[in-house]
Structure formats: structure tokens, C-alpha cells
Amino acid sequence: MSFLDVKDLKIHFPTDDGLVKSVDGLSFSVERGRTLGIVGESGSGKSVTSLGVLGLHKGGRARISGEIWLDGEELNGATAEHVRGLRGKKMAMIFQDPLSSMHPYYSVGHQIIEAYRIHNDVSKQVARKHAVDMLGRVGIPEPGRRVDSYPHEFSGGMRQRAMIAMALSCDPELLIADEPTTALDVTVQAQILDLMRDLQSEFNSALIIITHDLGVVAELSNDILVMYAGRCVEYGSTDDIFYRPEHPYTWGLLGSMPRLDREPTERLMPIKGSPPSLINVPQGCAFHPRCPFGERTEGKAETAAPALTETEGGHLVRCHMSRDERRTLWENEIKPALETS
């Protein structure tokens, strides 16, 4: 069993308009020292998944089923209080927008100290020293002074570093980063990604990076999970996803990935339409209304949901097309188009 093992996770929210199936049967696993990227458009259920792993839906309206095994312990069936004790200590999270995710009324140091003292019975002085250390380790200059600054007094990159420092303050074994660089400009993005890679190797933790941008996970991840409408549509090693992708949605994501050698306005294969409603997920293949190759399934796409099947050595794809058909399409049409542009 892996360090984190999620099996058939379903997270549904009853609303006045109907049942929102944010996550609908998701399974994945991560080992210590390894990194999983979860990629998808907004609304595909990636963030709900991460919050679900942390147990933050507990006590709310969400209906959660499936199993979440962390270090041999099942969390979905555990009490809210038990999971709370693990949060921040054994598993921690880095959020997307550090300005809104940090409390505006408390100093950065205070927020790190608070996080540390929940799980460590130490004096304020000790915790403060630890906070200064952490700020130093994430590369904040003059940490002894900046520890008393407020979040709004930091630059965006500094804030994200502080956020990381806070998440790492209790040496978590599982770290989930939800769009850790989205709010930052490009040069800072790279710095933060470098930092995260360094820290991961230093702490040897399991890392999950959630993003809509394949570029972010390209260098960092060992494995990548592509999500669509609450489900996994493709899963494989980073090489699999970048060099041998088999799902049309993944192709779309690759096509819309900004690259330095290409004009950012050019998109080879933009994904048509918008993400589906999670209340009325399309019949059959959830992706079929947007899929350019839907007609090749002879109508199956509209009636039957395709299964997630292994195509080769742990590479999983959820598509009605045959393996050969997909590979032919990739080799002959998609890949050349991506490369020539």
C-alpha cells in the first residue's frame, strides 16, 4: 500500500438545484518523496479532491464515500477531531492566493506560530524562533524582522513563500499545493517551483500539485492525473502524459499550454466549449460534447461511459477509441501540429 492511497473517492454536494457530483469515483496514490500532479480545468474537482483528502468537508453538507488511506490509516471513516489532529501536522496544504488565504489582521509570524503551536506543545518564544527559521528556509530575507510583518506588507512571491513556510512548519509528510503559482508572475513562478522542489527533496514528503497548467507540473511531477468532470480521464508518468498522451482532453491541455518558443496567442487545438455542469454531467462520455473525435466511436460516446483502462505499464486512459486509433491520431495529427507551430 502506498503512503497515500485514495480509492473510489466520491464527494457530492446536495443543493437546491440538484446533486453536485464534484468528485465521482477517483482513485490515485502517492509515495513519500514522489510528486503527483493533478491537472484539469477549474470546476473539474481537483480542489474538492484535495480538501477532501484533508478532511475539510467533514461536518459540512458534503456526502463523501470511498476510502482515503494515509500511512496505513483510513481517514474517511475517522472522526473529524482525529483528522483535525493530522491536518497541519501530517498533511498540510498550500493555497492558491496567499493574499486572501492568509488572515489580514494577524502578522505572518503569528500565523506560522499558531500553526506550529497547535501541534507542538512549545512556548511562544520557541515557536517564534521556529517561525523565523522557517521563513529563512523558504528564502525570505531578514526573517527576524519580516516575521512581524503583515501579509499585505509582503510581495506576492514573498507571501507565497511565507505560506509555504507555514505549511511546512510541522514537517508534514503529505503536502498538497493547490495552484501554488497561479497568482504570481512568471519569474516568481519559477522561483517558487524551484523552492518546492528543493524542499520536497529535503523533507522527503509526498507532494500533490494541483493545477490547470501542465507547464507547472512538467518539471516537478513524477506522475500526472488528468481530471475531467470529477473523474480521472488519463493517468500516467510525466513522460507518458507529455510524450504519449492518449486522451483528446489531454491533447487539448497540451495544445493550450503556453510555450516560450511559440506566440502565446496561437493555440493549435483549443478545447471547444466550457466545462460541463456537475449536476447534469453529459450522458455517455462526459467529454463527448467537446471532443473533436466523438464521431469515431459510432455513437458510443453519447450513450456509454468509457472505462478507465490501462493502455501500457500503469498508463490509464478513459476513452472509447481504440488504443491504436488514439496512437495513430497522436503520431500523425496531433504531435506534428504541436511541434510545427
Binding site: L86, R87, S101
Partner: peptide, 15 residues
């Protein structure tokens, strides 16, 4: 409903 409330919970703070 603010983000920093979610952060506080993610830290493992008591409700």
C-alpha cells in the same frame, strides 16, 4: 466563507 478561514482549518485549528 473567506479563504483564510479555510487556511485556518487546514492548519488543524480547533473549530
Amino acid at each position: 466563507g473567506e479563504d483564510y478561514i479555510r487556511t485556518a482549518r487546514a492548519k488543524g485549528l480547533h473549530e
